[in-house]
Design a protein around this nucleic acid. Structure first.
Lengths: 217, 217
DNA sequence: GAATCCATCTGGTCCAACCAGTTGACCAGT
DNA sequence: ACTGGTCAACTGGTTGGACCAGATGGATTC
Protein backbone atom coordinates (compact mmCIF):
# COMPACT_ATOMS: atom_id res chain seq x y z
CA UNK A 1 0.00 0.00 0.00
CA UNK A 2 1.00 3.60 -0.38
CA UNK A 3 2.96 4.77 2.62
CA UNK A 4 1.15 7.64 4.21
CA UNK A 5 3.65 10.47 3.86
CA UNK A 6 4.54 12.21 7.07
CA UNK A 7 2.48 15.32 7.16
CA UNK A 8 3.94 18.24 8.97
CA UNK A 9 1.10 20.63 8.95
CA UNK A 10 2.37 24.14 9.07
CA UNK A 11 1.22 26.48 11.80
CA UNK A 12 -0.84 28.61 9.46
CA UNK A 13 -2.53 25.52 8.00
CA UNK A 14 -3.52 24.29 11.44
CA UNK A 15 -4.75 27.72 12.39
CA UNK A 16 -6.75 27.94 9.19
CA UNK A 17 -8.39 24.61 9.94
CA UNK A 18 -9.26 25.66 13.48
CA UNK A 19 -10.77 28.98 12.48
CA UNK A 20 -12.58 27.43 9.52
CA UNK A 21 -14.17 24.80 11.74
CA UNK A 22 -15.14 27.43 14.27
CA UNK A 23 -16.96 29.30 11.53
CA UNK A 24 -18.57 26.24 9.94
CA UNK A 25 -19.74 24.93 13.28
CA UNK A 26 -21.37 28.25 14.07
CA UNK A 27 -19.23 28.98 17.10
CA UNK A 28 -18.21 32.08 15.20
CA UNK A 29 -21.58 33.23 13.87
CA UNK A 30 -21.95 35.26 10.69
CA UNK A 31 -21.61 38.96 11.30
CA UNK A 32 -19.49 38.60 14.38
CA UNK A 33 -15.98 39.99 14.45
CA UNK A 34 -12.98 37.74 14.30
CA UNK A 35 -10.46 38.12 17.10
CA UNK A 36 -7.80 40.64 16.16
CA UNK A 37 -4.71 39.21 14.51
CA UNK A 38 -2.44 40.20 17.37
CA UNK A 39 -4.76 38.59 19.90
CA UNK A 40 -5.05 35.41 17.86
CA UNK A 41 -1.28 35.26 17.69
CA UNK A 42 -1.11 35.56 21.45
CA UNK A 43 -3.94 33.08 22.01
CA UNK A 44 -2.28 30.35 19.97
CA UNK A 45 1.27 31.30 20.86
CA UNK A 46 2.31 31.83 17.27
CA UNK A 47 3.62 34.68 15.22
CA UNK A 48 1.28 37.20 13.73
CA UNK A 49 2.43 36.39 10.21
CA UNK A 50 1.22 32.83 10.60
CA UNK A 51 -2.13 34.23 11.68
CA UNK A 52 -2.20 36.52 8.69
CA UNK A 53 -1.57 33.65 6.28
CA UNK A 54 -4.44 31.73 7.85
CA UNK A 55 -6.77 34.72 7.70
CA UNK A 56 -5.77 35.32 4.11
CA UNK A 57 -6.93 31.83 3.29
CA UNK A 58 -10.18 32.33 5.18
CA UNK A 59 -10.66 35.43 3.07
CA UNK A 60 -10.05 33.53 -0.16
CA UNK A 61 -12.50 30.85 0.95
CA UNK A 62 -14.97 33.70 1.47
CA UNK A 63 -15.52 32.79 5.08
CA UNK A 64 -14.49 36.20 6.36
CA UNK A 65 -14.38 39.75 5.13
CA UNK A 66 -11.25 41.75 5.85
CA UNK A 67 -10.99 45.52 5.80
CA UNK A 68 -7.96 47.50 6.72
CA UNK A 69 -8.43 49.47 9.88
CA UNK A 70 -11.72 47.79 10.60
CA UNK A 71 -12.27 44.40 12.10
CA UNK A 72 -12.35 41.16 10.20
CA UNK A 73 -15.94 39.98 10.11
CA UNK A 74 -17.33 36.50 9.70
CA UNK A 75 -19.46 35.94 6.61
CA UNK A 76 -22.43 33.61 6.19
CA UNK A 77 -20.61 30.79 4.45
CA UNK A 78 -23.85 29.23 3.23
CA UNK A 79 -24.36 32.33 1.15
CA UNK A 80 -20.80 33.09 0.14
CA UNK A 81 -18.42 30.12 0.28
CA UNK A 82 -17.61 28.10 -2.81
CA UNK A 83 -17.37 24.43 -3.62
CA UNK A 84 -13.65 24.34 -2.87
CA UNK A 85 -14.53 24.68 0.78
CA UNK A 86 -15.58 21.04 0.65
CA UNK A 87 -12.23 19.93 -0.71
CA UNK A 88 -10.49 19.36 2.57
CA UNK A 89 -12.99 19.68 5.37
CA UNK A 90 -12.46 17.26 8.19
CA UNK A 91 -14.47 14.09 8.03
CA UNK A 92 -15.94 14.60 11.47
CA UNK A 93 -17.50 17.90 10.61
CA UNK A 94 -21.17 17.59 11.46
CA UNK A 95 -22.32 20.14 8.93
CA UNK A 96 -20.73 18.14 6.16
CA UNK A 97 -22.11 14.77 7.16
CA UNK A 98 -24.01 14.28 3.92
CA UNK A 99 -21.39 15.94 1.79
CA UNK A 100 -20.16 12.68 0.35
CA UNK A 101 -23.63 11.87 -0.92
CA UNK A 102 -24.06 15.40 -2.21
CA UNK A 103 -20.79 15.19 -4.10
CA UNK A 104 -21.78 11.94 -5.79
CA UNK A 105 -25.14 13.43 -6.67
CA UNK A 106 -23.41 16.39 -8.25
CA UNK A 107 -20.98 14.17 -10.11
CA UNK A 108 -23.89 12.30 -11.62
CA UNK A 109 -25.68 15.52 -12.59
CA UNK A 110 -22.65 17.15 -14.15
CA UNK A 111 -21.50 13.90 -15.67
CA UNK A 112 -24.76 13.44 -17.53
CA UNK A 113 -24.71 16.93 -18.98
CA UNK A 114 -21.01 16.73 -19.76
CA UNK A 115 -21.61 13.49 -21.65
CA UNK A 116 -24.32 15.20 -23.65
CA UNK A 117 -22.07 18.14 -24.49
CA UNK A 118 -19.07 15.93 -25.12
CA UNK A 119 -21.03 13.94 -27.67
CA UNK A 120 -21.75 17.20 -29.48
CA UNK A 121 -18.43 18.94 -29.21
CA UNK A 122 -15.76 16.26 -28.84
CA UNK A 123 -12.87 15.89 -31.25
CA UNK A 124 -12.12 12.57 -32.91
CA UNK A 125 -9.07 12.19 -30.68
CA UNK A 126 -11.17 12.65 -27.56
CA UNK A 127 -13.68 10.09 -28.74
CA UNK A 128 -10.90 7.59 -29.36
CA UNK A 129 -9.38 8.24 -25.96
CA UNK A 130 -12.73 7.73 -24.26
CA UNK A 131 -13.37 4.47 -26.06
CA UNK A 132 -9.91 3.33 -25.09
CA UNK A 133 -10.45 4.32 -21.46
CA UNK A 134 -13.72 2.41 -21.38
CA UNK A 135 -11.99 -0.68 -22.74
CA UNK A 136 -9.19 -0.34 -20.23
CA UNK A 137 -11.83 -0.12 -17.52
CA UNK A 138 -13.26 -3.47 -18.52
CA UNK A 139 -9.86 -5.09 -18.32
CA UNK A 140 -9.24 -4.22 -14.67
CA UNK A 141 -11.18 -6.86 -12.82
CA UNK A 142 -12.47 -6.57 -9.27
CA UNK A 143 -9.93 -4.15 -7.76
CA UNK A 144 -12.21 -1.44 -6.40
CA UNK A 145 -9.45 1.11 -5.89
CA UNK A 146 -8.18 0.62 -9.42
CA UNK A 147 -11.71 0.80 -10.77
CA UNK A 148 -12.29 4.06 -8.95
CA UNK A 149 -9.11 5.53 -10.39
CA UNK A 150 -10.02 4.38 -13.88
CA UNK A 151 -13.54 5.70 -13.43
CA UNK A 152 -12.21 9.14 -12.59
CA UNK A 153 -9.83 9.01 -15.55
CA UNK A 154 -12.65 8.06 -17.92
CA UNK A 155 -14.98 10.73 -16.67
CA UNK A 156 -12.22 13.31 -16.74
CA UNK A 157 -11.92 12.74 -20.47
CA UNK A 158 -15.66 13.16 -20.88
CA UNK A 159 -15.84 16.30 -18.73
CA UNK A 160 -12.82 17.83 -20.43
CA UNK A 161 -14.28 16.89 -23.78
CA UNK A 162 -17.47 18.75 -22.97
CA UNK A 163 -15.54 21.97 -23.39
CA UNK A 164 -17.12 23.39 -20.28
CA UNK A 165 -14.42 24.73 -18.01
CA UNK A 166 -16.78 25.17 -15.09
CA UNK A 167 -17.62 21.48 -15.23
CA UNK A 168 -13.97 20.53 -15.37
CA UNK A 169 -13.00 22.65 -12.39
CA UNK A 170 -15.92 21.38 -10.34
CA UNK A 171 -15.01 17.85 -11.28
CA UNK A 172 -11.50 18.39 -9.94
CA UNK A 173 -12.89 19.34 -6.56
CA UNK A 174 -15.44 16.54 -6.48
CA UNK A 175 -12.97 13.77 -7.22
CA UNK A 176 -10.06 15.16 -5.19
CA UNK A 177 -9.40 15.79 -1.56
CA UNK A 178 -11.52 14.73 1.35
CA UNK A 179 -14.81 14.89 -0.54
CA UNK A 180 -13.84 11.89 -2.62
CA UNK A 181 -12.04 9.90 0.06
CA UNK A 182 -14.48 9.08 2.78
CA UNK A 183 -13.92 6.40 5.34
CA UNK A 184 -15.44 3.48 3.45
CA UNK A 185 -16.68 4.98 0.26
CA UNK A 186 -15.76 2.36 -2.31
CA UNK A 187 -17.55 -0.63 -0.79
CA UNK A 188 -20.80 1.27 -1.06
CA UNK A 189 -20.22 1.61 -4.76
CA UNK A 190 -19.19 -1.96 -5.44
CA UNK A 191 -22.11 -2.78 -7.70
CA UNK A 192 -21.79 0.47 -9.57
CA UNK A 193 -18.04 0.19 -10.00
CA UNK A 194 -18.23 -3.39 -11.24
CA UNK A 195 -20.67 -2.39 -13.97
CA UNK A 196 -18.52 -2.23 -17.05
CA UNK A 197 -21.42 -2.07 -19.47
CA UNK A 198 -22.48 1.39 -18.40
CA UNK A 199 -19.00 2.70 -19.25
CA UNK A 200 -19.11 1.04 -22.63
CA UNK A 201 -22.44 2.66 -23.33
CA UNK A 202 -21.04 6.02 -22.29
CA UNK A 203 -18.16 5.65 -24.71
CA UNK A 204 -20.49 4.59 -27.50
CA UNK A 205 -22.70 7.57 -26.87
CA UNK A 206 -19.84 10.01 -27.07
CA UNK A 207 -18.20 8.32 -30.02
CA UNK A 208 -21.46 8.05 -31.93
CA UNK A 209 -22.65 11.55 -31.02
CA UNK A 210 -25.84 9.99 -29.73
CA UNK A 211 -28.11 11.72 -27.30
CA UNK A 212 -27.45 10.51 -23.78
CA UNK A 213 -29.76 7.87 -22.43
CA UNK A 214 -30.11 9.70 -19.17
CA UNK A 215 -28.99 6.70 -17.18
CA UNK A 216 -25.32 7.54 -17.24
CA UNK A 217 -23.66 7.03 -13.89
CA UNK B 1 -26.40 53.33 -9.23
CA UNK B 2 -24.23 51.68 -6.65
CA UNK B 3 -21.12 53.71 -6.07
CA UNK B 4 -18.10 51.58 -6.84
CA UNK B 5 -16.23 51.49 -3.54
CA UNK B 6 -12.61 52.51 -3.68
CA UNK B 7 -10.59 49.36 -3.80
CA UNK B 8 -7.10 49.41 -2.44
CA UNK B 9 -5.67 46.13 -3.55
CA UNK B 10 -3.09 44.91 -1.13
CA UNK B 11 0.37 43.95 -2.32
CA UNK B 12 -0.18 40.25 -1.74
CA UNK B 13 -3.48 40.36 -3.64
CA UNK B 14 -1.83 41.99 -6.63
CA UNK B 15 1.01 39.51 -6.51
CA UNK B 16 -1.44 36.64 -6.31
CA UNK B 17 -3.25 37.91 -9.38
CA UNK B 18 -0.01 38.28 -11.32
CA UNK B 19 1.29 34.83 -10.49
CA UNK B 20 -2.13 33.26 -11.05
CA UNK B 21 -2.38 34.77 -14.51
CA UNK B 22 1.14 33.68 -15.33
CA UNK B 23 0.15 30.13 -14.51
CA UNK B 24 -3.21 30.22 -16.25
CA UNK B 25 -1.72 31.75 -19.36
CA UNK B 26 0.90 29.01 -19.50
CA UNK B 27 3.85 31.31 -19.09
CA UNK B 28 4.58 29.24 -16.01
CA UNK B 29 4.00 25.74 -17.37
CA UNK B 30 2.92 22.87 -15.17
CA UNK B 31 5.85 21.11 -13.58
CA UNK B 32 8.14 24.10 -13.69
CA UNK B 33 9.46 25.59 -10.50
CA UNK B 34 8.17 28.86 -9.19
CA UNK B 35 10.75 31.55 -8.54
CA UNK B 36 12.00 31.37 -4.98
CA UNK B 37 10.16 33.53 -2.48
CA UNK B 38 13.21 35.67 -1.79
CA UNK B 39 13.74 36.24 -5.50
CA UNK B 40 10.09 37.09 -6.07
CA UNK B 41 10.29 39.58 -3.24
CA UNK B 42 13.32 41.18 -4.88
CA UNK B 43 11.76 41.08 -8.34
CA UNK B 44 8.61 42.92 -7.27
CA UNK B 45 10.28 45.08 -4.68
CA UNK B 46 8.11 43.85 -1.84
CA UNK B 47 8.69 42.06 1.38
CA UNK B 48 8.96 38.32 1.49
CA UNK B 49 5.98 38.05 3.83
CA UNK B 50 3.72 39.54 1.19
CA UNK B 51 5.06 37.00 -1.28
CA UNK B 52 4.34 34.20 1.15
CA UNK B 53 0.72 35.29 1.53
CA UNK B 54 0.31 35.27 -2.22
CA UNK B 55 1.93 31.85 -2.58
CA UNK B 56 -0.25 30.53 0.22
CA UNK B 57 -3.27 31.53 -1.80
CA UNK B 58 -1.88 29.92 -4.93
CA UNK B 59 -1.45 26.79 -2.87
CA UNK B 60 -5.04 26.88 -1.66
CA UNK B 61 -6.24 27.39 -5.23
CA UNK B 62 -4.23 24.26 -6.06
CA UNK B 63 -2.22 26.09 -8.67
CA UNK B 64 1.11 25.26 -7.03
CA UNK B 65 2.54 22.61 -4.76
CA UNK B 66 4.71 23.79 -1.90
CA UNK B 67 7.21 21.64 -0.05
CA UNK B 68 9.51 22.84 2.63
CA UNK B 69 13.10 22.75 1.55
CA UNK B 70 12.19 21.92 -2.01
CA UNK B 71 11.02 24.29 -4.64
CA UNK B 72 7.45 25.36 -5.16
CA UNK B 73 6.24 23.69 -8.32
CA UNK B 74 3.50 24.71 -10.69
CA UNK B 75 0.61 22.26 -10.98
CA UNK B 76 -1.54 21.52 -14.01
CA UNK B 77 -4.50 23.65 -13.05
CA UNK B 78 -6.76 21.91 -15.54
CA UNK B 79 -6.32 18.77 -13.50
CA UNK B 80 -6.22 20.20 -10.01
CA UNK B 81 -7.83 23.63 -9.63
CA UNK B 82 -11.38 24.01 -8.37
CA UNK B 83 -14.37 26.02 -9.44
CA UNK B 84 -13.49 28.85 -7.08
CA UNK B 85 -10.64 29.69 -9.39
CA UNK B 86 -13.23 31.14 -11.73
CA UNK B 87 -14.64 33.43 -9.06
CA UNK B 88 -12.40 36.39 -9.63
CA UNK B 89 -10.36 35.81 -12.75
CA UNK B 90 -9.76 38.87 -14.82
CA UNK B 91 -12.18 39.43 -17.68
CA UNK B 92 -9.42 39.67 -20.23
CA UNK B 93 -8.04 36.25 -19.50
CA UNK B 94 -7.99 34.40 -22.79
CA UNK B 95 -8.33 30.96 -21.25
CA UNK B 96 -11.54 31.98 -19.59
CA UNK B 97 -13.14 33.58 -22.59
CA UNK B 98 -16.08 31.19 -22.65
CA UNK B 99 -16.33 30.94 -18.90
CA UNK B 100 -19.42 33.09 -18.74
CA UNK B 101 -21.26 30.74 -21.07
CA UNK B 102 -19.94 27.73 -19.17
CA UNK B 103 -21.16 29.16 -15.90
CA UNK B 104 -24.66 29.72 -17.25
CA UNK B 105 -24.66 26.22 -18.65
CA UNK B 106 -23.73 24.86 -15.28
CA UNK B 107 -26.33 26.98 -13.52
CA UNK B 108 -28.97 25.50 -15.77
CA UNK B 109 -27.76 21.96 -15.19
CA UNK B 110 -27.54 22.25 -11.43
CA UNK B 111 -30.71 24.31 -11.27
CA UNK B 112 -32.72 21.61 -12.99
CA UNK B 113 -31.50 18.88 -10.68
CA UNK B 114 -31.85 21.10 -7.61
CA UNK B 115 -35.45 21.82 -8.58
CA UNK B 116 -36.10 18.10 -8.85
CA UNK B 117 -34.56 17.43 -5.45
CA UNK B 118 -36.18 20.47 -3.89
CA UNK B 119 -39.58 19.24 -4.97
CA UNK B 120 -38.86 16.01 -3.15
CA UNK B 121 -37.19 17.25 -0.03
CA UNK B 122 -38.41 20.80 0.56
CA UNK B 123 -40.15 21.84 3.75
CA UNK B 124 -43.52 23.63 3.65
CA UNK B 125 -41.76 26.85 4.65
CA UNK B 126 -39.36 26.57 1.75
CA UNK B 127 -42.18 25.95 -0.68
CA UNK B 128 -44.00 29.03 0.58
CA UNK B 129 -40.88 31.14 0.34
CA UNK B 130 -40.29 30.01 -3.24
CA UNK B 131 -43.84 30.78 -4.28
CA UNK B 132 -43.52 34.18 -2.69
CA UNK B 133 -40.22 34.83 -4.43
CA UNK B 134 -41.75 33.87 -7.77
CA UNK B 135 -44.61 36.29 -7.19
CA UNK B 136 -42.22 39.03 -6.20
CA UNK B 137 -40.33 38.37 -9.40
CA UNK B 138 -43.42 39.01 -11.47
CA UNK B 139 -43.98 42.34 -9.77
CA UNK B 140 -40.63 43.83 -10.71
CA UNK B 141 -41.15 44.99 -14.25
CA UNK B 142 -38.46 45.54 -16.83
CA UNK B 143 -35.49 46.41 -14.62
CA UNK B 144 -32.93 43.89 -15.79
CA UNK B 145 -30.59 44.38 -12.84
CA UNK B 146 -33.42 43.94 -10.36
CA UNK B 147 -34.67 40.91 -12.25
CA UNK B 148 -31.23 39.35 -12.13
CA UNK B 149 -31.01 39.91 -8.38
CA UNK B 150 -34.46 38.45 -7.84
CA UNK B 151 -33.62 35.53 -10.10
CA UNK B 152 -30.60 34.69 -7.99
CA UNK B 153 -32.65 35.01 -4.82
CA UNK B 154 -35.33 32.69 -6.17
CA UNK B 155 -32.87 30.09 -7.33
CA UNK B 156 -30.97 30.30 -4.08
CA UNK B 157 -34.08 29.19 -2.27
CA UNK B 158 -34.49 26.27 -4.67
CA UNK B 159 -30.85 25.22 -4.47
CA UNK B 160 -30.80 25.52 -0.69
CA UNK B 161 -34.06 23.62 -0.54
CA UNK B 162 -32.56 20.77 -2.49
CA UNK B 163 -30.57 19.89 0.61
CA UNK B 164 -27.46 19.39 -1.49
CA UNK B 165 -24.62 21.38 0.01
CA UNK B 166 -22.38 20.85 -3.01
CA UNK B 167 -25.00 22.47 -5.21
CA UNK B 168 -25.37 25.39 -2.84
CA UNK B 169 -21.64 26.07 -2.64
CA UNK B 170 -21.25 25.82 -6.41
CA UNK B 171 -24.19 28.15 -6.84
CA UNK B 172 -22.47 30.72 -4.64
CA UNK B 173 -19.46 30.73 -6.93
CA UNK B 174 -21.51 30.79 -10.11
CA UNK B 175 -23.63 33.77 -9.15
CA UNK B 176 -20.90 35.75 -7.38
CA UNK B 177 -17.71 37.43 -8.36
CA UNK B 178 -16.44 37.97 -11.86
CA UNK B 179 -18.08 34.87 -13.31
CA UNK B 180 -21.50 36.41 -12.91
CA UNK B 181 -20.63 40.01 -13.76
CA UNK B 182 -19.37 40.13 -17.29
CA UNK B 183 -19.18 43.28 -19.29
CA UNK B 184 -22.65 43.20 -20.81
CA UNK B 185 -24.17 40.03 -19.51
CA UNK B 186 -27.72 41.04 -18.73
CA UNK B 187 -28.73 42.35 -22.13
CA UNK B 188 -27.99 38.94 -23.59
CA UNK B 189 -30.47 37.46 -21.18
CA UNK B 190 -33.23 40.01 -21.69
CA UNK B 191 -35.75 37.58 -23.10
CA UNK B 192 -35.00 34.99 -20.48
CA UNK B 193 -35.12 37.44 -17.61
CA UNK B 194 -38.42 38.92 -18.75
CA UNK B 195 -40.03 35.50 -18.77
CA UNK B 196 -42.02 35.45 -15.55
CA UNK B 197 -44.02 32.37 -16.46
CA UNK B 198 -41.07 30.05 -16.22
CA UNK B 199 -40.48 31.15 -12.61
CA UNK B 200 -44.12 30.60 -11.78
CA UNK B 201 -43.92 27.09 -13.19
CA UNK B 202 -40.79 26.45 -11.17
CA UNK B 203 -42.54 27.49 -7.98
CA UNK B 204 -45.56 25.35 -8.82
CA UNK B 205 -43.36 22.37 -9.45
CA UNK B 206 -41.61 22.69 -6.13
CA UNK B 207 -44.75 23.47 -4.20
CA UNK B 208 -46.68 20.64 -5.80
CA UNK B 209 -43.86 18.13 -5.58
CA UNK B 210 -44.21 17.56 -9.29
CA UNK B 211 -41.51 16.09 -11.41
CA UNK B 212 -39.55 18.80 -13.18
CA UNK B 213 -40.51 19.55 -16.73
CA UNK B 214 -36.90 19.64 -17.81
CA UNK B 215 -37.27 23.08 -19.30
CA UNK B 216 -36.42 24.96 -16.15
CA UNK B 217 -34.04 27.80 -16.78
C1' DG C 1 31.56 3.83 -10.07
C1' DA C 2 28.85 4.12 -5.87
C1' DA C 3 27.93 5.70 -1.42
C1' DT C 4 28.59 9.48 1.69
C1' DC C 5 29.03 14.14 3.37
C1' DC C 6 28.16 18.94 3.67
C1' DA C 7 27.70 23.75 1.82
C1' DT C 8 23.90 25.91 0.17
C1' DC C 9 19.71 26.31 -1.60
C1' DT C 10 14.57 26.09 -0.51
C1' DG C 11 10.42 27.13 2.44
C1' DG C 12 8.73 27.93 7.70
C1' DT C 13 8.74 30.76 11.78
C1' DC C 14 9.76 34.34 14.74
C1' DC C 15 10.66 39.23 16.72
C1' DA C 16 10.15 44.05 16.46
C1' DA C 17 8.83 48.09 14.44
C1' DC C 18 6.29 51.17 11.66
C1' DC C 19 2.59 52.62 8.07
C1' DA C 20 -2.31 53.21 7.03
C1' DG C 21 -7.00 53.12 7.54
C1' DT C 22 -11.19 52.83 11.06
C1' DT C 23 -13.51 53.53 15.15
C1' DG C 24 -15.45 55.79 18.90
C1' DA C 25 -15.14 58.73 22.69
C1' DC C 26 -14.45 63.27 23.75
C1' DC C 27 -15.01 68.19 23.27
C1' DA C 28 -16.18 72.76 21.03
C1' DG C 29 -19.51 75.27 18.76
C1' DT C 30 -24.23 76.02 17.60
C1' DA D 1 -29.66 68.91 23.20
C1' DC D 2 -27.66 68.43 18.94
C1' DT D 3 -24.09 68.78 15.47
C1' DG D 4 -19.57 68.80 13.97
C1' DG D 5 -14.68 68.12 14.26
C1' DT D 6 -10.53 66.28 16.67
C1' DC D 7 -7.62 62.79 18.20
C1' DA D 8 -6.08 58.81 20.77
C1' DA D 9 -6.40 53.91 20.41
C1' DC D 10 -7.57 50.43 18.08
C1' DT D 11 -7.59 47.48 13.45
C1' DG D 12 -5.15 45.37 9.40
C1' DG D 13 -0.86 46.14 5.91
C1' DT D 14 4.05 46.20 5.23
C1' DT D 15 8.83 46.06 6.16
C1' DG D 16 13.40 44.41 7.84
C1' DG D 17 16.24 41.05 9.64
C1' DA D 18 17.25 36.84 11.78
C1' DC D 19 17.06 32.02 12.50
C1' DC D 20 15.12 27.08 12.06
C1' DA D 21 14.17 22.98 9.13
C1' DG D 22 14.05 20.24 5.19
C1' DA D 23 15.79 19.24 0.33
C1' DT D 24 19.41 19.42 -3.12
C1' DG D 25 23.43 18.60 -5.59
C1' DG D 26 28.20 18.66 -6.13
C1' DA D 27 32.55 17.33 -3.88
C1' DT D 28 34.63 13.89 -1.28
C1' DT D 29 35.59 9.34 0.01
C1' DC D 30 35.57 4.46 -0.28
Amino acid sequence: MTEAPIKRESVSDQLFAVLRDRILSGRLPAGSALTAERDLAAEFGVNRHAVREAVKRLQQARLVEVSQGGRTRVLDWRASAGLDLAFDVAQGNAVFAGLQRDAMEMRACIGADAARLCAERRSPETAAAIVEAAEAYGAIGADLAALDTADVALWRLVVAGSGNLAYLLSFNTLVGGAVASGEVPLVHRTAELLDVTIRRRLAEHVAGRNAPAGTLS
